[in-house]
Amino acid sequence: MARHKEKIFGVLAQFESSQDIFRACEKVRDAGYTRWDAHTPFPVHGLDAAMGLKPSRLPWIVLVAALTGASCALLLQWWTSAVDYPLIIAGKPLFSWQAFVPVTFEVAVLFGALGALLGMLGLNRLPQHYHPVFQSKAFDRASDDKFFISIEAQDPRFDTSKTADMLRSVGATHVEMLEE
């Protein structure tokens, strides 16, 4: 087995319901695995805690993006209206900031939304059109009605037969090896 080990990506186990995968994830987490993942057709409520995941850092990315947007918009309006092309309109001060609130707000939302989508993709390392789990024929159902756990061979606790046995013991209905 050892000589094949470089080629093995990990093990993929199939579960039949959100209840089964929830309990299985708790078991895998408690067994001390770190390089593993669950694949579910929809976000299963509470599975983050069952997997022991830390909260997402995405809100900070969005905050920075939105503040950048607001600053850029305000800076643009100040520079164009008060510095580069000073034009008195309706007797208002050149930097009449109240009138600049709508555009500042809208641009903050635009940058924030771009930060949310691109930040989410960045944290998830997407797009990544190839991944070893896609080798599995059964895995096509991961986006339909089946639930999966993949444990990577890189995990320090990984052992080809013991890990597979452990997954069967927590309720997996189908277990297969994935190549790199």
Binding site: V44, S56, P59, F105, V109, N124, P127, Q128, H129
Partner: peptide
């Protein structure tokens, strides 16, 4: 984009969706 229904991805995804909802509401 190579979405593989990973729960590690769903975690960030759900957060992104919530934030987009939060941004879109005042928008």
């Amino acid at each position: 984009l190579g979405w593989r229904d990973s729960n590690r991805h769903w975690q960030h995804y759900e957060k992104a969706y919530l934030i987009l909802a939060g941004l879109s509401t005042p928008l």
